[in-house]
Design a protein around this nucleic acid. Structure first.
Length: 423
DNA sequence: TCTGGGGTCCTAGGACCC
DNA sequence: TCTGGGGTCCTAGGACCC
């Protein structure tokens, strides 16, 4: 059964958001900058027409900005997030199942509507009326085809913002005109590989043998081929999935030359990451610290340092995370003292997240005010066996542990409940 | 002490997306 | 001189376990 999936996305979302509050921005070139005002991350159609590229550095745009009176904005993610939520509210009036895909895109379940195109047009009008943001809608039997329909509607004004591609005849007519690199999931590397095989359009990719697709680009590309054939492989996920990780990273204009300077930046990022964790009511199981040199200066020595550490106690505690980060940073710091590295980017990532409500006390949790019974038992066992004892258990949730006195003695495993009581 | 097959878990790195 | 940040998924290979 072919269920219609729609995707609605807003045109140049950040620019559209800025335009809501400033009518003088209509019909003039506008760009919104990245976090550090480093480069353009959103451009109005007028700015695109001037040849301003996505991710183009601001300092290379100064001439165009002066010559054409381009309006320039720093990004305001709090505002964009708020507008995004309001747009979703409108979508929810038009379909019961909404999957939020990104800040400006939602997949919508469009099954059960008699005239899908009319429904989409009405939704579009309503978003514009209530929020003031223009959106486009693509409809098709799979997400990849819906994205494709959306893209076609974006590029061709004749569709007036809505394209329903449920009909195979229409898809067969349009897909040969879509370059393969425009397909969702086909990036630069895959595009180059496909072109070498003579696959240039979306229609070529759809007709590629799935075995070959898997060989070229793993199961991901194989799924894309099936999706282009109208066979959905990516389901509509209308319940928000548990977030898997969070990152805090920044570039710095001034190269950081010594460990303490880099670690200062890392500390700031860890602090922010811990705040984010607590805001979301989560604790982290692993922490990764990384830093690298300026990739735009290949003439200077290059280095990427990265280290991941487990946080045994599952924590969102700033102090504990900073301590862990210090160990990671020290371990990842370059050993070669003869070279001078200038680090321009540093970041931290926390992964293996768990809602704090689900967090159980782990075997080796030392952060609690009162240590777990297992921790007390472990300390006593270690006291008794002295330095010879090496405990190999790593994860308390497994409810078992292994210990051996040294490499010559037998290992044994026991259930937590069977542990000998040590007094 | 050696032997070893078949799992799982972990991590790094690549590719892609918005 | 100035060059974004935050995500996901997949694979390979090593460590570890029984």
């Amino acid at each position: 059964m072919r269920r219609p999936i729609a995707i609605s996305d807003s045109a140049n979302f950040y620019v559209s958001a800025e335009r809501i509050f400033d009518p003088t921005l209509a019909n003039v070139p506008v760009i919104v900058l990245s976090n550090n005002d480093g480069c353009a991350v959103a451009r109005s159609d007028e700015a695109k027409a001037l040849g301003i590229k996505m991710g183009e550095p601001l300092h290379l745009l100064q001439d165009k900005i002066k010559a054409h009176g381009v309006r320039v904005f720093s990004s305001n993610y709090t505002l964009y997030g708020d507008i995004s939520r309001r747009v979703v509210d409108v979508y929810e009036d038009f379909t019961p199942n909404v999957e939020i895909y990104s800040i400006d895109e939602c997949f919508l379940d469009f099954s059960g509507f008699k005239d899908r195109e009319a429904h989409a047009r009405k939704m579009r009008r309503e978003v514009l009326r209530r929020i003031g943001v223009p959106v486009r809608v693509g409809i098709a039997p799979s997400k990849t085809l819906a994205k494709c329909a959306n893209d076609i509607a974006k590029r061709n004004p004749i569709f007036a913002g809505v394209l329903d591609m449920m009909d195979d005849t229409l898809a067969n007519w349009l897909l040969p005109m879509v370059p393969v690199g425009d397909i969702w999931g086909v990036g630069g590397k895959t595009e180059a590989k496909l072109k070498r095989l003579g696959i240039r359009t979306a229609a070529d990719l759809r007709d590629m043998p799935t075995r070959q697709a898997r060989a070229v680009g793993t199961v991901v590309l194989e799924r894309t081929v099936l999706e282009l054939q109208g066979e959905p492989c990516l389901a509509l996920e209308d319940v928000e999935p548990q977030r898997k990780g969070m990152a805090v990273t920044r570039s710095s204009g001034q190269p950081m030359m010594d460990f303490e300077t880099v670690f200062q930046a890392v500390t700031a990022h860890v602090t922010r990451a811990a705040e984010k964790l607590r805001q979301h009511g989560l604790v982290a199981g692993t922490l990764t610290v990384f830093f690298h040199t300026n990739r735009y200066r290949p003439d200077r020595p290059q280095y990427t340092g990265s280290r991941t550490a487990r946080i045994m106690s599952m924590s969102s505690d700033t102090f504990e995370l900073v301590q862990t980060a210090r160990r990671c940073a020290e371990a990842a710091w370059p050993r070669d003292k003869t070279r001078e590295y200038g680090f321009t980017k540093a970041g931290v990532m926390v992964n293996d997240l768990l809602p704090i409500a689900d967090r159980r006390q782990t075997l080796f949790d030392r952060s609690e005010a009162s240590p777990s019974p297992a921790m007390i038992a472990l300390d006593k066992i270690n006291d008794r066996f002295g330095k010879k004892t090496m405990v190999l258990a790593s994860e308390g949730l497994k409810q078992s542990w292994k210990m051996r006195a040294d490499h010559r003695s037998p290992r044994y495993t026991t259930r937590l409940s069977d542990l000998p009581v040590v007094r």
